[in-house]
């Protein structure tokens, strides 16, 4: 795996409250809740893992609700900033899972932002792309990139389009497409 960083728990900081949305601290130095990822660390992870330009996240804020679930919210104008904490059902889109050894992007995040990735993008051909969307694991020996969570994509209508997140380990690509998103689709 490429990245084993995690934010260590710190007894001097407050405990996470899972039932509400809290804005992520800007940097590790701004951290007030134990184990909470900062905005800087979240963006750095995407830059290191996928080579995205960090500027793509300007205009978005990041929030934690639940234990380690990070959400991304369009929030361009500081004059219209949302209060933190905020107790509502959902805010923006689920973005990634932190507070675990290997951080993991969501299918939704990779489908929305994965086209910015410059590395760790695995492009599948017709039948394999369809199998991946059905949630199947795929034997795959020819990958020479990093191990870990990859952007898995295919070619569609003139461009490479992300399908979801694949976990690459030991010559196998595991589909992490959630059950509710899995679909039997045509081999293109």
């Amino acid at each position: 795996m490429t990245d084993e960083r995690r934010v260590p728990e710190d007894d001097r900081l407050a405990d996470n409250v899972g039932q509400r949305f809290d804005r992520l601290p800007a940097t590790p130095a701004d951290r007030t809740v134990s184990g909470r990822a900062s905005r800087e660390e979240v963006i750095e992870w995407w830059v290191e893992q996928y080579g995205v330009d960090p500027a793509i996240f300007e205009g978005y804020s990041f929030w934690e609700k639940g234990a380690g679930k990070v959400w991304i919210c369009a929030e361009k104008e500081t004059s219209q900033a949302l209060p933190s904490p905020i107790e509502i059902e959902a805010l923006g889109m689920t973005f990634m899972r932190t507070r675990q050894r290997h951080w993991k992007p969501t299918t939704a995040a990779v489908q929305r932002f994965g086209h910015h990735a410059k590395k760790n993008v695995l492009v599948l051909e017709g039948a394999e792309a369809a199998a991946f969307a059905r949630g199947e694991d795929i034997p795959y020996e020819s990958w020479d990139g990093d191990w870990g969570y990859l952007v898995v994509a295919h070619e569609l209508a003139g461009d490479v389009e992300p399908i979801g997140v694949g976990l690459y380990l030991y010559d196998e690509l595991r589909s992490t497409v959630p059950k509710g998103r899995q679909e039997s689709l045509a081999d293109l």
Binding site: A74, I88, A90, L91, G92, M93, T106, A108, Q111, R181
Partner: peptide
Amino acid sequence: ERLGVTNLAV
């Protein structure tokens, strides 16, 4: 989530 909407509070 499927449609990639980020400006929605529920």
